[in-house]
Amino acid sequence: MLTISEVSKSYGKKRVLDDISIELENGLYGLLAPNGAGKTTLLKLIVTLLSPDRGEILWNGAPVQKLGASYREIIGYLPQQFGYYKYNTPVQYLDYLAALKGLPREGLKEKIFSVLDTVGLSDVAQVKMRKFSGGMIQRVGIAQALMGDSRLLILDEPTAGLDPKERARFRNLIAEMSKNRIVILSTHIVSDVESVSGRVLMLKDRKLVRNQSASALCSELEGKVFEIRVKTDDQAAALKKEHFILSERNEAGSMILRYYSEQPAGLEGERLCPPNLEDLFLVMYR
């Protein structure tokens, strides 16, 4: 079990995280917050790249800083930005990282090809990475995080640069993996979290403000999300003035506005909608 206990972190005088406490057991956690809210900082604290100013992080009750290598060897980490050597093939790169992770040499080659197959890169396993697209590089990053049967998988913006097909494949993969390990998925792409997360962790104003399942979070907006079809720009402008618009789209020559309101506006054609996580995200960080 991973315990984050009253952790705070500042960069100089700027406080980024304040008094964060969470207990994480096996399962999938989506860490959701806008850019710059401290998601990456929290993940870097968990993987010991940063030290907390206050509080501590415990793995099965022991402080991670003291556990050192024995803690880091159970981590699979995909940083938001990770360096790679263009002159390496994915196999060479993963072989190097396997050495850093202390994975045994025995059966390593098979393991490398297996993870490359998992992320759909087995056909370019021996191609230099200088020829790779951003999405392919991201998949190499995911592959290295998956190597070594980690008990704690930390993924910072893992779907950045992936095409829809790869995103779907990736979501299925981590849903499967979260059955017997802790998977923390940090993103600002709400749909990624909504489709895979068991629980959603939300950061706001340097604090952890939500730690619930996606459905429980959505229920907070039950009866407060509406849609209406408007035909003129004046109607749309009037509605935008009165209510918080969640989305707008054009359909058959008219505009459909989705909005948040504590009470029904009482407009003609107004329709109550089931809320989703994106609605909550927009309302919470408006």
Partner: peptide
């Protein structure tokens, strides 16, 4: 300088070798 400029440190330091 390659490792410094490529920012490989975060990935390397998070592994067992630290």
């Amino acid at each position: 300088l390659l490792d410094k400029n490529l920012e490989t440190a975060s990935l390397m330091v998070s592994t067992r070798v630290g």
